[in-house]
Simulated scan of single mutants.
Amino acid sequence: MLDFYRRPATMTSGGEHARMLDAVPRDLAGMTRVVQSLLLHEHWAPAYGVTLPDKRRSESHIRPASRMLDRLLSIDDRPLTAARPVDARLVGVCRHFTVLLVAMLRAQGVPARARCGFGAYFKPGHFEDHWVCEYWNAMDGRWVLVDAQIDDVQRAKVQPDFDLLDVPRDRFVIAGDAWARCRAGDADPSTFGIFDMRGLWFVAGNLLRDLAALNNMEMLPWDVWGAMIRPDEALGDDRLALFDRLSTITRAPDAAFAELRALYEGNEDLRVPATVFNKVLNRPEAVEVIR
């Protein structure tokens, strides 16, 4: 199972830039600082004094890490360890910070995977749509959550009360846990989401994105496909049972690894298809496969 998350895959391969990924610092803190010096979060840009033109915002729709690096290096072709000025960084969102860190860790042989869920540290009383990296700490024998997005600028505003290199699981709630809590009546679904998009349907969407990420298909936060639920859609018992099962599997993916892989690969409503719908751009898009 660890080998599955140790090998670069479709979205986490460096492609022709693989050697550049291998050259970044080998310590987690140093690696995270490199990620932060290469990316600019689209919605945090004003905090850095940057006004993004629409052309630059399009970078947040890049999926594979290799294409992210293509674009980044077209702006500034120095080694990845060279910190970029904020206006020369690749524009992305939390998912891009996560995917790039996963790519770096895997390039160095460290098992790592992206997790989709909700951060409890951005807005009091709310669980905001978010992605983090989860890597295997061999010394401790456990998976550890890392938020690669929160740098010093964001830290001053967010003021996290925990180690961002070891995020507690009640501060970042994986989508499967969020679903289980909502279904049990232990959490209000309306507190999960982002902007004006909130509710159990949103949790279900992130649950499917987390399932895909655990199968090495780290999609955009606004990619829609298959079994995802519409905001106004009533959920029957069959759909609820399906997402209940996905919640159980993704909450303990190692123990259920064989089922996680079989269910994803064997169900076309769960598996990422060749074309997904980009909800932000309101159009279907082909999913590029990088070998």
Rank of each mutant, 00 (worst) to 15 (best):
D27K: 01
L200D: 08
S247H: 02
T98W: 02
L263Y: 00
T248D: 07
M197S: 11
D186R: 14
R89E: 04
Q108S: 04
G15N: 10
V167P: 03
W222M: 07
Q108P: 08
D147I: 06
V158K: 11
T98Y: 04
T98R: 12
L270G: 02
D188L: 06
E134W: 15
K279Y: 09
L165R: 04
A178C: 13
C116Y: 09
K123D: 11
L105F: 06
V224N: 06
M139K: 13
L39S: 05
Q36L: 14
D177V: 09
E285W: 09
A138C: 03
A255P: 02
V35N: 05
D129P: 02
P273R: 14
S247I: 02
P284F: 15
V287P: 09
P25Q: 01
D166V: 02
A227H: 02
L73C: 07
E42L: 12
G176D: 06
A262H: 12
D76H: 06
A45P: 03
D238N: 05
P124H: 12
R67Y: 09
R169F: 13
R283G: 08
E285S: 07
P46N: 01
D22L: 11
F243K: 04
F243M: 03
D166T: 00
S247M: 01
R251E: 07
A227F: 00
L242H: 06
L200Y: 08
L21V: 06
W44A: 13
A212E: 01
A148Q: 00
M1W: 11
R26W: 04
F118C: 04
A180F: 01
A83W: 10
H17G: 05
K279M: 11
R95S: 14
I290F: 08
W136L: 05
Q149Y: 02
R78Y: 10
L281T: 01
G30Y: 04
D161S: 14
L281M: 06
P46F: 01
R6N: 05
V24S: 11
P231R: 00
C94I: 01
G109Y: 03
M139Y: 07
C182G: 06
T10H: 13
A212R: 01
